[in-house]
């Protein structure tokens, strides 16, 4: 099935599929991974993001926990997208993703399946759902940077 952001039915399916069959969904106890816990008083999401950095790359990314369809699907898609990418590449994706949520021009091609969250900002309160794991990844990167200071 070829991927097209012009096809709303397909975008919808991608969200539902990632919500119901989350990718890289697994609790990680391996100490080499940086674990970031994302939760807040205002939202029910309670999500752990686990990132393994190696040689400037995101060698592995997993997640566990509970969240709404938007946060769960977005986290699932993010883990697939950033695995194997360099930190720089992952940061670029993050920046484009945030531009998309802010309704600015962005690089559609780079975001691949994450394009299905293009209209999330129709409900401004859901933007924080869509980017919860990206914010987690950013925190993980900051922690990784501190290790090398």
């Amino acid at each position: 099935m070829s991927f097209s952001i012009k096809d709303p039915m397909m975008m919808r399916e991608i969200i539902l599929d990632n919500y119901q069959n989350p990718r890289n969904f697994e609790e990680v106890e391996d100490q080499r991974y940086i674990t970031i816990h994302m939760d807040s008083a205002s939202c029910i999401d309670d999500i752990y993001v686990y990132v393994l950095f190696e040689d400037g790359k995101v060698k592995d990314c997993k997640w566990s926990g509970k969240g709404c369809a938007i946060s769960s699907a977005s986290t699932s898609i993010m883990t697939e997208m950033v695995k194997g990418k360099t930190e720089e590449e992952a940061k670029k994706m993050m920046a484009e993703f945030n531009k998309m949520l802010a309704n600015e021009d962005y690089d559609e091609e780079l975001l691949a399946e994450a394009n299905c969250f293009k209209n999330v900002n129709r409900q401004p309160s859901r933007i924080t759902c869509a980017n919860i794991s990206w914010r987690g990844l950013e925190k993980a990167m900051n922690e990784e940077d501190k290790k090398h200071e």
Binding site: P8, M9, M11, R12, I15, L16, A69, F117, N119, V120, R122, Q123
Partner: peptide, 8 residues
């Protein structure tokens, strides 16, 4: 049908 909101 909560995802309808995000798609036309």
């Amino acid at each position: 049908d909560f995802l309808d909101v995000f798609f036309d």
